[in-house]
Simulated scan of single mutants.
Amino acid sequence: MPELPEVETVRRTLNQLVAGKRILRVTVSLPRIIQRPKAPDEFAAMLAGRTILSVERRGKFLRIIMDGLVLVSHLRMEGRYGVYHEDETTELHTHVVFHFDDGMELRYKDVRQFGTMHLFALGEELALPPLNKLGMEPLEDAFTLQAFKKRLAKRTTKIKPLLLNQEYVVGLGNIYVDEALFTAGIHPERTANSIKPAEWARLHVSIVATLGRAVEAGGSSIKSYVNGQGEMGMFQHELLVYGRKNEPCSRCGQFIEKFVVGGRGTHICTSCQPLPKGLQAGRLSRK
């Protein structure tokens, strides 16, 4: 699933490609993608004649701002947007097409068919699902160490599942949580209330720095992710632990190990991310 850096990269690309374009009509071939309104015909009718003003982001959601409306779109596992000329062949699994009055098209393709689109009146989208319960944005100025600690530090939940919970901090997925915890030297099974002030400071810096570097690299193309121009991200070449099971740690040389935390495959260096005495780690796997 695309995480914050990938969605931010798509946002930036689409903002360059579609801002200012006027929608002539919309074609929907897979109705279940459209969550609000439920009727695809109503969705298409509401968008006809609208001009895209900008493309913004909230967590892992895209917010396509138009004159009077906002389209909230989640890519889920493999959703992707691309801009094409109307004469170009439409690929399989293209479910929604926004036809512009200049002969170009914004096409939404989703092999897994898990993506969603919600349409709101401008301004109401932040107060209603799916955006109304989202937590802090880690790349905004409001994401201070004090705010971060206040929201999480007293929780008894393990730190990895807590960071993955979008109601606390948005945009973090499996890749970047593993990377941030490694850089901060924190074991993913530590409970939040066991983390010391200096560790919170390291984790805060690590989250911001890891996401910032990933955005600049265009995200990580682990599976099928590409931006709106069909370009792959490059941050996968900079990953320190994620996907590197049985490879030597770049810091200490010990093999990276993998086990499951909160139902998610988790990569760590047990030397650089020690678990305090008295706590038992999950079963490690080197298979």
Rank of each mutant, 00 (worst) to 15 (best):
G265S: 15
L134N: 11
P138D: 08
E140R: 11
R151M: 15
T94V: 13
D87L: 01
L275K: 04
R155L: 15
Q35K: 15
G243M: 07
R251Y: 06
S271E: 10
L211S: 09
F43A: 02
P197R: 09
E231D: 11
L126C: 03
I207G: 09
T266W: 02
A39E: 15
I33W: 05
T13M: 04
E78F: 06
G218V: 04
P130C: 06
I52S: 02
M77I: 14
Q280L: 07
Q113Y: 03
L75M: 13
S285R: 07
V177K: 07
V111H: 14
D87R: 08
N227G: 06
N227D: 15
Q16M: 03
E216L: 12
E137G: 08
M77G: 10
L211M: 13
E257Y: 01
V205C: 01
T94E: 09
H118D: 12
A48L: 00
G253P: 05
E3M: 11
F100N: 02
N227A: 07
G262I: 02
E216H: 07
S250W: 03
H74K: 02
G173A: 10
T210D: 10
N165E: 15
A147M: 04
Q166V: 12
F98I: 03
Y84E: 06
T51I: 02
A19E: 01
S54A: 14
L17Y: 01
L30E: 13
Y84K: 12
G262M: 03
R244N: 11
H95T: 06
N165H: 15
G219A: 09
L128E: 15
M234T: 14
R22L: 00
G265A: 12
V26C: 06
P2R: 12
A45I: 00
E125F: 07
T13Q: 02
E56A: 10
E199F: 09
E247W: 02
T144W: 12
G278M: 01
G171R: 07
A19Q: 04
R264D: 08
K38Q: 11
Y81W: 15
L14Y: 08
V70Y: 00
V70L: 01
N165F: 03
L131P: 12
G49P: 04
R50Y: 00
F148C: 10
K149L: 03
A45C: 02
T90K: 11
H204Q: 09
G103M: 04
T90G: 01
L24E: 13
A44E: 05
N227E: 04
Y168L: 14
I256S: 06
F143C: 09
L172T: 05
E179R: 12
V111S: 10
V177M: 07
R107V: 05
M136Q: 14
